[in-house]
Amino acid sequence: MSEDKSLKAQAWTLFDRIVEPALSENGQPSSNPWWKNASGLWFKPDYSVLQRLLGVPLLLGAPSQSGVPALALDVWTAYELRRAGFEPDLVWPRATPPRILPSTLVALRREATREQRRVLDGMLQSGKTYGGETGASANILGKNYVKQVDVVMSTWNTGPEIMISTKRMDSSFGKNAANRVEESYGDAKNLRSRHPQAALGFFFSLRSTVLTPQFEDVAAWIIDLLGKLGREDDAYDAVCLIIPDWSDDVAAPSGDDDDGEDPLVSAGLAGEGLAAEEPLPLELPESELDRRLRSLPTVELNRKAVPENLRPEVFFATIINRVLDNSPVNFHREARRLRANPNPR
């Protein structure tokens, strides 16, 4: 197993255990994330889970190129969509392997006999990607090219309903910021042109060191650009920013914030391509798993520095409302029920 796959296998073990207690046995939310007060309806993200997920790459010392630091964002985003009541198996990455599973296979498994399900589960949980139909990455055709999308909700009869790209920048702010924003803008146009009714989002993480005097102007510029990405009808519906903060005593993920995504691999033209196997969680003794979870570095979130229009509360509410507004009332019943019965405050 390559080093990157080994790190992802370790990360998935920890990620899965962190999100598992917050969801019920069927993957549905154990509590309603919607709240209502005098100002109206609002979505309350689970920041405590996000902070623990962000600690996993730091614990593992995972470099950016391994994909693990960015994967923490994917896991949390998918977790929040499941908390919102969307069907767990249709939100990718899923909470169990395979992380990508087409709705047709979900339906097949649901209707299978016990013996058929045993055989099917043995195949699906093997780590094989079966021509790219299952696995760890979702590659979606836009107007002009195939794009790997980090968090997706899709079925055969609806097509993609949610497409969210995540990016993380922990260093080299001045060097890479422009490239990341330009790439995201082009990706939005590409995906929106083919899927105009889908909820399209961009989730960006900037380490808090960007707020130091050295990068003050760069930080203001990045935050301003992120706000503008969500203003056009044919681009993103919502853009999100988080600013994680951790001690300099913790080894930060190394590298130049390249998450390892290769457009040619997404298109099936280079590298391991569609035949690559999915990294599976490691089987760790409970004592070792508990020890690692207790050892997670502390990660705080600077929420005051994030403008209101870029906060996760607004981001998830916008994405969820767009999906529900653009689908028939008999679709996504649980998500509609949760939104219609918010917690009082």
Rank of each mutant, 00 (worst) to 15 (best):
S24A: 15
P29S: 04
V239H: 01
D217H: 07
V19I: 15
V181N: 02
D16I: 11
L191Q: 09
T158R: 09
L269P: 10
A276W: 12
T13K: 03
K189I: 14
L108G: 03
S171L: 06
I18E: 01
L280F: 05
S66K: 05
P279I: 01
G127Y: 10
V49A: 09
K44G: 04
K167T: 04
M1R: 15
L274S: 12
P21F: 02
A305W: 09
Y47L: 10
W246M: 03
L59W: 00
G227E: 00
E232T: 13
S31F: 08
K189V: 15
E288L: 12
M123P: 01
S6G: 07
I222H: 02
D121G: 05
A340R: 15
K228P: 00
L284A: 08
S66G: 11
I243T: 08
M123D: 05
A220D: 08
L58Y: 00
A112L: 07
K147E: 10
S39T: 14
F173A: 03
I140H: 02
L280A: 01
Y47S: 03
K304S: 14
P160S: 07
T212L: 06
Q148A: 13
R336V: 05
A84F: 09
Q28Y: 14
V329C: 03
L41S: 09
C240H: 02
P312S: 09
V323Q: 04
W156Q: 13
S327M: 06
